[in-house]
Design a protein around this nucleic acid. Structure first.
Lengths: 201, 201
DNA sequence: ATGTCGGTTGACTGACCAGTCAATCGCACG
DNA sequence: CGTGCGATTGACTGGTCAGTCAACCGACAT
């Protein structure tokens, strides 16, 4: 196609990854063809296979490079000397901001990996679970310190917390919830109001 | 195969649907072949197409016949004269019991439809949204009556509530949360403790 | 018995697409 | 300028599978 000019290998690789995000977000992983990614990147079909062993590896790469950042973030947050409530807020903030910065990438990660339980979700189960476990640790400490009520298991609370956030992102992705910067900012507080404060009057 | 004996059309249709649930749960919709469904049902390949126009229609049928029951249930619950908290508990109970009764069917509905945002989730968006909207109505009434704090939008609370439940089911499906009748029963209360009561001490 | 109707069968087809590979291109270095 | 090597190209292949269809069969009616 039009990739005649030489550029550093890392740049070309990124060019393909970025194109893949757009294509996966638009058409979905299973429905798109590798040629769609190549076309979107302005690159020949075969070049995708020069940089990646398979179509799967493209998605694996996109998922891992983002998810690992999140897992690390959760760990860092937990190490800080903050009330457990604020730790959860920091995590909700990070996820919401990730969506705001690159909605297409977050859509792909959630729709094609995190929630694709029979394909990539299974492949990356351990990595996904790691995030849940780290959230559970935060909840557990919150209970130990008396900040949180000891009425549910930390694992359960972690799943409910993460599930609530992911569902809200899903709502944005499919236009079921209003979008926009103000909404995103409000949502951070809403998550904590709902899960920490509770709906009860 | 072994479908030589005549049975009523409705029974044969159900036989194929039941087989499809097992196959979809085991292999996933995209990964399984129509011949897998036929084999599992003990029926010839072509017979699947006698009862259904396409592979998609098999999943559509499974989803709709169960989801419509849930949407109706939410409507009925809302019409009852109950505290909003108890209404949410009734909905959580129904979903958890649905999973307990037929985990494979719930797995298929969640994994292949509800969370399959680029394929069937999109097709059935209106129907899925209907459930969320009805939950939001319950939350809204709870706020109007003063039972719930007016700190988040009803739509947001509905998404968080449903997202939390679905994530817990996902946890069971993939062995991330402990399973068993006692766990299922506890989970009903846990959902309300988390979303209604809140984690705050 | 014989015929009819519709449920049942499974081999076949057409389309699709991931991945391969031999040829080409263009930069860097002698 | 060559020449060599790695990036780049895109036509091709092999396999897969959804959906079709003509033949078959068995229950029931006459």
């Amino acid at each position: 196609m039009t990739a005649t000019t030489r550029v550093p290998a890392a740049d070309r690789r990124r060019q393909i990854l970025d194109a893949a995000v757009r294509v996966f977000a638009r058409q979905g992983f299973h429905t798109c063809r590798v040629s769609d990614i190549a076309d979107e990147a302005g690159v020949a079909y075969g070049l995708v296979y020069h940089y990646f062993r398979s179509k799967d590896e493209v998605l694996d790469t996109l998922f891992l490079e983002r998810w690992n950042v999140m897992v690390a973030l959760i760990g860092q947050v937990d190490e800080q000397d903050l009330p457990a409530r604020d730790k959860l807020y920091a995590i909700a903030s990070f996820i919401v901001d990730s969506y705001r910065r690159d909605p297409e990438l977050m859509k792909v990660i959630i729709v094609e990996v995190t929630r694709a339980a029979n394909s990539f979700g299974r492949t990356h189960l351990d990595q996904i679970r790691l995030a849940y476990d780290r959230i559970a640790v935060i909840v557990e400490k919150g209970m130990a310190s008396g900040e949180f009520r000891d009425v549910v298991t930390p694992q359960f609370a972690a799943m409910a917390f993460y599930g609530a956030i992911e569902q809200v992102l899903t709502g944005w992705i499919f236009g079921m919830l209003p979008t926009g910067d103000e909404e995103y900012e409000r949502a951070k507080g809403f998550v904590i109001e709902t899960i920490f404060g509770g709906l009860a009057a």
